[in-house]
Simulated assay, not measured.
Amino acid sequence: MTKAKVNTGIDINDYKDIWIIAEQREGEIHPVSLELLGIGRELADKLNVELTAILLGDNLDVTANELIKYGANRVMLNKHKLLHTYTTDLYTKVIADLIFERRPEAVLIGATTIGRDLAPRLAARVGTGLTADCTKLDIDKTDGKILQTRPAFGGNLMATIVCKNNRPQMSTIRPGVMKKLPYDSKRKGWVETLTPNLREEDIKAKVIEIIKEAKKRVSLTDAEIIISGGRGLGNKEGFELIEKLANKLGGVVGSSRAAVDNEWIHPSHQVGQTGTTVRPKLYIACGISGAIQHLAGMSESECIVAINKNPDAPIFKIANYSIVGDVYDIIPEIINSLDI
């Protein structure tokens, strides 16, 4: 059994550079990895250090070069047939060994299903702390430490956490909250190809078969237009109207937590602190009052339109356009105007 190596008595001045863990699935880079490169580039520039992407898999040479075009200075490509599919044991071993050898200042991981499995195991292995589900990262101007901000107490306040004595500083970042950099075909960097020493015996839990969902669920993270419904719809039939508007605008359907709790719509549509964080070009909130948990997940949208009968609804405070009225009167009028 591999034992954790505790990082005691370390000299934090020996640690430098920002790392991001580039998540891939069947050779495709997960969108959150590009978002990590965006915030990683910002942090690295403030600290005047390099940004490195850690990529594990097999036959990913082209993918590795793509990460450079999105902001990385260097890509450490760990190639091995046993890394083709994610396993907690092998990914933890490979990345932990790299951390002990190269000593990064910070490691950023996407808060996906894979990231949430990997990050705590990795933090325990290298003996450092982990701030989960961050929505903001910045640099403390006084000492250069990373300020890791995440919602706390059910999203009712934002807590900023600092890892003072251990390295690397580790965070998981919620998908959809950071901006990715534009693709730059002229950006230069280098790929360092590594071959980890791995054996089948290193895998305690093996992936026998991958079964994809028969029904494809909504992708809120990549949507440019989202029409969301909340408790104000009154019943699940209200989402038929929301879907009509979404279809007219070429968008997707979102929802508040209250609508999901009432079983009016599938949880994959939920926007907010306990759902998906989004930043579309257009977000239309229909019958959503604006609980802080929901606002935390959509307040970065470029344009917010709120429709609510209550003129004092909290969502109006962040909306670009506010419409006071019944969604069942207003949405049909919007749909009719789009037919003109």
Rank of each mutant, 00 (worst) to 15 (best):
N165F: 10
R187H: 11
G154N: 09
F239S: 09
Q169A: 14
I208K: 13
R231K: 15
G250V: 02
V162M: 07
L245T: 14
N197M: 07
L181F: 02
Q148N: 03
G176E: 10
K180Q: 14
R125G: 01
E213A: 04
R125Y: 04
E240Y: 07
K215L: 01
V218E: 15
E224R: 12
E240H: 09
D140V: 02
L130V: 02
L194H: 15
T221Y: 11
S185N: 13
G234D: 12
A246T: 04
I139C: 03
G144C: 02
D202N: 10
A246R: 09
L233I: 09
L194R: 15
K244S: 12
K215E: 14
L241E: 12
A159E: 15
N197Y: 07
K136P: 01
E213C: 00
E192W: 03
E201Q: 12
M170W: 13
I161K: 00
P196H: 07
D138G: 04
K141V: 05
D117E: 14
V177Q: 02
L194G: 06
A205I: 15
L157C: 14
L118Y: 14
K236Y: 11
K248D: 15
A132H: 02
E224D: 15
G176M: 08
A124L: 06
N166W: 12
G110V: 01
L194Q: 12
F153P: 03
R116Y: 04
A132N: 01
A123K: 00
K212Q: 12
N166I: 08
E201V: 07
I109K: 01
A214H: 10
I173Y: 06
I109V: 09
L108N: 04
K136A: 08
G234C: 08
K248T: 11
V126Q: 10
F239T: 09
K145Q: 02
I225Y: 07
K180P: 06
N156L: 06
R167T: 01
S185P: 02
D140M: 01
